[in-house]
């Protein structure tokens, strides 16, 4: 390549010393096609194929074995436990998320940066480690254990542990979504409302909530999706007591470990369906939210 070439064409595209403008735009068209193809291929191999495989494997032996597999009592109780943990995690994290986001964006105080960092902790810590932390905090070797035992409240290898783990790993999702919106709004409108005599709850309901509604919904969807799929931390705290402390992802693991491939895929298909439902809800929320935002 000559110095002249480099001068005339943009350094990104010209490889072969194509100096004229037309070759350059043609080159960028080719780049576009290549990039799109690569992305589509990547998505297909990484996402679509596995999804098809799951559904295909689940139904390979026909509908009846599929229905049998998913109506297995252990699977049903796993589904219920998953839904229970998800709902509780969403409720707790919604409340917490609102409080945290509000506190962080509306007040100035010492240690604010620390709090913001702490909220992110659950996504940065490996879920397995999170599980272990809870085992150490609430398990037999913990100082809390005698007390928990005396009130007959078991955390480790019990449902509360599962819920705790789920709440922990989905901790930041909602507050993270609301925070930027609250920050962008500033405090002016709330102050204006306060000056007109409105009290805290009215201000929140009438001024703040309409503003963060869509971000909140989006956060809830993300939180629910993550809660349903949680495996690592739950796995550590579960103890795998079938029909008691097994969630859907754990049930899949168990079936897979027992070489029951078809049932494993059948149960997986439930998770896939739930995931697709959530994705659809997410798209709707995003769409409506955007339209409202533009008005």
């Amino acid at each position: 390549m000559t110095a002249e070439n480099t001068e005339k064409t943009s350094p990104v595209i010209s490889r072969e010393g194509s100096t004229d403008i037309h070759a350059k735009t043609a080159g960028s068209k080719a780049v576009k096609i290549i990039l799109i193809t690569v992305s589509v291929l990547f998505l297909f191999v990484m996402l679509v194929m596995p999804l098809i495989t799951v559904i295909y494997e689940a139904f390979r032996k026909g509908l009846v074995p599929y229905l049998e597999a998913i109506s297995d009592p252990d699977t049903m109780s796993a589904l219920l436990l998953t839904l229970e943990a998800t709902v509780i995690a969403v409720v707790i994290n919604t409340v917490f998320g609102l409080f945290a986001a509000w506190t962080i964006s509306k007040f100035r105080f010492h240690g604010k940066k620390v709090l913001v960092t702490l909220i992110d902790l659950p996504v940065t810590v490996s879920p397995i480690i999170a599980g272990l932390i809870f085992v150490l905090t609430f398990g037999r070797q913990s100082v809390l254990y005698p007390f928990l035992e005396s009130i007959d409240f078991m955390v480790v290898y019990a449902v509360p542990g599962i819920i705790l783990a789920t709440v922990f790993v989905t901790f930041p999702f909602i507050s993270r979504e609301i925070l930027p919106v609250l920050d962008a709004q500033g405090t002016d409108e709330e102050e204006a409302a306060a000056l007109m005599g409105a009290k805290g709850l009215t201000i929140f309901r009438k001024i703040t909530l309409p503003h963060i509604k869509w971000a909140l919904m989006y956060g809830i969807v993300l939180c629910a999706a993550r809660a349903m799929g949680e495996f690592g931390a739950v796995s550590v705290l579960s103890g795998h007591l079938r029909g008691k402390t097994v969630t859907l992802p754990l049930q899949v693991e168990i079936l897979f470990g027992d070489n029951k491939f078809m049932p494993a895929f059948a149960v997986s298909s439930i998770l896939v369906v739930l995931a697709v439902v959530i994705l659809i809800v997410r798209s709707i929320v995003e769409y409506i939210g955007k339209r409202r935002g533009e008005k």
């Binding site: 500033g186 204006a192 306060a194 001024i207």
Partner: peptide, 27 residues
């Protein structure tokens, strides 16, 4: 502030963006 009974016009106006003109004034 909520009990001082003072009217305040903000530099940015701080109108309630999710309320109509009517609802803003009625608030």
């Amino acid at each position: 502030a909520s009990e001082r009974g003072i009217g305040f016009v903000f530099q940015s106006y701080a109108l309630f963006r999710y309320m109509t003109v009517y609802d803003n004034i009625a608030f």
